[in-house]
């Protein structure tokens, strides 16, 4: 029970970062390799504002907003120009990695390379669930992550803007020919992806403290969670994160206390070999059957 719940708590963080990767990819077909550093921006900015004496809750909101703003700027500065030059190039791979390095080293220059305190609002309270014990912070993290995944999925499926995102993901040129400002939507997607990373940052901050190199660890874990969940639906990335968290905690318990450092890589190799399109591909035969059942009889040209 303890492994399961602790795994869900850390997996929720991986899942939020993975959803950030997935949201940006969903609309633009670009992996933002600075996603982990956006988590770090959320943590560092929130911690800095809190240290200035600002109310910690306001500092946390500002941290999330800062991560969203940096996400939007990343699209406008590092992704859009390279796609404008060549729509089919993969130059964004290098440019977003460049942004990651700039953010990481920039944060180290501004705030120093060592860990600083982060407002510990909920870590002092314990919650008992059966035989397991979690901090209130961990319980809130699981709840917020699941609510964010469900909220995003409802938004994607039920609102015109969400459907527009699906249309842009499917055929960006046709979406443009229907009046969609694809640059605006892509910028918004990167901002939302940044907000998800920032949210993950302020949820993990009380445990890890603020550190400019946090982005490496959580960026890699989030990317692995994305590979597990698959890129076809952002909410599946959350499932990938939760699963990765549980497997990592189980590895810590059963193999070695440091096993969660290397175990994700074993998981991702197995996933890429067995289910290269992610967990959701398991449901593909079911979806095909439903589609066949819905198709009109004798549908031809």
């Amino acid at each position: 029970m303890q492994v399961l719940l602790s795994g869900l708590a850390i997996g929720a963080i991986y899942g939020l970062v993975a959803m950030g990767f997935a949201i940006a990819f969903y609309v633009t077909r670009v992996i933002n390799f600075a996603e982990g550093q956006l988590l770090m921006v959320g943590v560092m900015v929130a911690a800095w504002f809190a240290r200035t004496g600002l109310d910690p809750w306001i500092a946390i909101v500002l941290g999330i907003l800062a991560a969203a703003a940096v996400g939007a700027v990343t699209y406008l500065v590092a992704v859009r120009p390279v796609l404008a030059f060549d729509r089919f190039s993969f130059a964004w791979l290098v440019s977003t990695l460049g942004v990651a390095l700039i953010l990481e080293n920039g944060a180290a220059l501004v705030w120093g390379p060592t860990s600083r305190s982060f407002p510990a609002l909920l870590t002092g309270t314990s919650v008992h669930v059966g035989s397991a014990t979690l901090t209130l912070q961990e319980v809130v993290t699981i709840g917020v992550a699941i609510a964010a995944a469900i909220g995003f999925e409802l938004y994607r499926r039920r609102t015109l803007f969400g459907k527009l995102g699906m249309a842009i993901a499917h055929d960006p040129e046709m979406a443009t020919a229907l009046g969609a400002n694809t640059v605006l939507v892509a910028t918004a997607a990167f901002a939302l992806a940044g907000a998800f990373a920032g949210l993950a940052g302020v949820l993990i901050g009380p445990i890890t403290y603020s550190n400019p190199y946090l982005g490496d660890t959580y960026g890699i874990a989030g990317f692995v969670a994305l590979m597990i969940g698959g890129t076809s639906r952002p909410a599946a990335a959350m499932a990938g994160g939760l699963l990765l968290g549980i497997l990592g905690e189980a590895a810590n318990k059963l193999i070695d206390t440091q096993a969660s450092d290397w175990f994700p890589f074993v998981v991702v190799v197995v996933m890429l070999l067995v289910l290269p399109e992610g967990l959701l591909s398991l449901a593909a035969p079911f979806r095909r059957a439903v589609r066949r059942a819905r198709a009109p009889a004798g549908a031809t040209g």
């Binding site: 015109l160 459907k163 699906m166 249309a167 499917h170 979406a175 229907l178 009046g179």
Partner: peptide, 19 residues
């Protein structure tokens, strides 16, 4: 045609009236 094949017909139509 380039429809958004995974989306319902009415959603395809409504996307035409985006503006």
């Amino acid at each position: 045609r380039r429809l958004f094949v995974d989306q319902p017909i009415e959603d395809n139509l409504l996307l035409g009236a985006l503006h």
